[in-house]
Structures are given as C-alpha cells and as structure tokens.
C-alpha cells in the first residue's frame, strides 16, 4: 500500500491547496483552545470545517480533526462539543491525547474513529496496545523520541497503525510532557495549545546585536543583519557549566525524506507533515514533494533528489531521533 501523506491545514485555503496538491489526508482543528496550534487567525469555524470536509471527500481525501490539548478542569464541555461537532462535520477521525477525552469519545461517539495524538507520547508497544484495548484507538502518532529500528519493533508488536512526523518543526522534549513554555510565559501546549507564544516575544537591539526574548528570557542573540530565528524555548542558546551553545537543540527543523524507504520497511502507515501555521503555498509544495516520493517508492523508482531544501528557509535540517545518535 502506498504510504499515506497526512498534511496540515491551518485555513480552509490551505486545506484545498493540500488536497489539490495530492494529500491523501488533511488534519486541522477548530479555532479555539481545543487544538495544539491555537494561534490567532488560524484554524476552522464549524461551518468552515463542514465545508472543508465536504471538499476533501469530494476529492477523495480524508480529514482528521485534532482535539489534542488537555481539557481544563470545569470546562470539559468545550472539548466534548468539539468532538461532537467534528463527528457532525463528517470528519474521518479525531486526534486525541487526554485519557478522559478518549474515554468520553469512545462512550459517546463509538463510531467516530480515534487516533492517539503525539501529545500522548505513547512510546512503546505495550501502552499503544493498551490504548487500543481500552479506547479502541486505531492509529497512533509516534512521539519524536524513537529511532527507526524502534519504530519497526513497535510495528511488529501492534496492529495499531503508526503515523510519524517527517517534515517541519521538531519537539526535542517528549510531546505533551513539557511545561517549559508555561514556566516562562504562562501559556503551554497542554493547557493553551501554544508553545513559546508570539504574544510573549520581544526583539530589541543592543550594541549592534539583535536580542530575541521570550517572557523576558534571552533566547537568541544574533549580530545585526544576520537572520534571527524565532525564539522557541528549547532551541535557544544558553550557558551551563563552562559551555555556551544550543544545549537542547540547534535551531533545526525535521526532514526525514531520505528515510521514507526505511520508514516504509518499518511498517509505518502514514507520514505526517508539521505546520498548521504555514502558508498554503508552503503546504502545497511540501505535499507535492512527499506525494512524489511515496508514489516513486510504490512504483519502485528512486526518490526524487533533495526536493525540500529550499523550503527550509536557510534552517539546518535534522533527522532527529530517527537516528539513534541524536540522543
């Protein structure tokens, strides 16, 4: 079977662009705190979701709705409504992380397919099988802490489909287990659907250098005129002991295009592209390239060469944890 390309859409326009560019599946969220890309001006109203699902289905593509933050105590009904609305819109599946929400969905929407979000950080076959047995989860998005051989070993021990990230932003911490952002800004991926939020970013010039701060903490300092990366907390430059540098991770993004054949051999069902905050032209181009790659693989042709380098915006690329030495 050809590997499934799962593509992000932050807007209805990006959804249509992704579908036209050949995405088998698009994932998106409602425009509120129920999804982990809760950025201003992004995501779907209820009617946009209904129209988007209809458009995708007309073109033979599927839509997954991410409801993958952790509901706030006292306000779970907001998340419950998101699930019933996704169901009513005709979504092919919901992507969930919170056990309470999985429990709710499996009781109240048993026929709505459930995927386990990367935010649940299910990192071994036993917990994946447990989610399948307990909540009838059909697919798991694997956390970015596993090597390709470990992914193969997981697939050998489970019938749950696996989906892995191949391109875009890269969490270096186990997803859904990180509160660095709320420590510095009060807003976190788990509670608010944001990490290192733009509302708390401040750029200032100081003696010919450009300082990028998040919540008052200096994350990057670059010479004036040099490209200044966005101050994502875990990709900052810090000091510890007698060392100064990118202690957690360099300002890199993930590109596992060269690993597609190995991921296929490891039994992976779907390849996920990060970036619901990206433009429709970016999304379309990434989709076209990955679609060409999986089609080439299926036909037994060699993969197109170096297809995505120009999309990385001058950023360095990494294959992340897929190579064990990353650890």
């Amino acid at each position: 079977m050809v590997m499934e390309i799962v593509c992000p859409a932050g807007t209805p326009a990006a959804l249509r662009a992704a579908v036209k560019a050949g995405a088998h599946t698009v994932y998106c969220g409602f425009n509120d705190e129920t999804n982990a890309r809760n950025f201003p001006g992004l995501n779907f109203s209820r009617s946009e979701m209904r129209d988007g699902v209809a458009f995708a289905h007309d073109h033979g593509a599927k839509v997954l709705v991410a409801i993958n933050t952790f509901p706030r105590a006292g306000d779970e009904v907001i998340w419950h409504h998101a699930i019933s609305d996704a169901d009513a819109c005709g979504a092919n599946a919901v992507i969930l992380a919170d056990p309470g929400l999985l429990d709710h969905a499996s009781r109240n929407h048993p026929r709505l397919r459930r995927h386990l979000s990367v935010q649940a950080a299910a990192a071994n076959a036993d917990i994946i099988n447990f989610y399948a047995k307990t909540f009838d989860v059909k697919r798991v998005v694997l956390p970015r802490v596993l090597s390709v051989p470990e992914i193969a070993a997981i697939n050998a021990e489970t019938t749950v489909e696996t989906e892995v990230f191949v391109f875009g932003g890269l969490c270096v911490m186990a997803e859904g287990r990180c509160s660095l952002s709320s420590y510095a800004t009060g807003l976190s991926p788990n509670m608010n659907g944001v990490c290192s939020p733009a509302s708390h970013v401040d750029y200032a010039e100081d003696q010919g250098a450009l300082d990028a701060r998040l919540g008052g903490y200096l994350i990057h300092r670059v010479e004036k005129g040099q490209p200044a990366p966005y101050p994502t907390l875990c990709k900052g430059c810090f000091s510890a002991g007698d060392k100064t540098g990118h202690l957690f991770e360099d300002p890199v993004s993930l590109n596992a295009e060269r690993l597609i054949p190995q991921l296929h051999k490891a039994g992976v069902t779907a390849l996920k592209i990060e970036g619901r905050q990206r433009s429709k032209s970016y999304v379309a181009q990434v989709v076209r390239n990955f679609r060409a790659a999986v089609d080439a693989l299926e036909a037994g042709r060699p993969l197109p060469e170096g297809m995505l380098a120009r999309l990385s915006e001058g950023q360095a690329m990494t294959t992340g944890a897929y190579k064990k030495t990353w650890r």
């Binding site: 105590a73 006292g74 779970e76 056990p99 309470g100 429990d103 788990n190």
Partner: peptide, 13 residues
C-alpha cells in the same frame, strides 16, 4: 508526570 488536567481523566483513573 501523568497528565491529570480534568475530572474526566481523574474519573477514568
């Protein structure tokens, strides 16, 4: 380190 953010998860646990 287990994500218990709401009543639903608490009830399930």
């Amino acid at each position: 380190l287990v994500n218990v953010y709401n009543e639903g998860t608490l009830r399930w646990l």
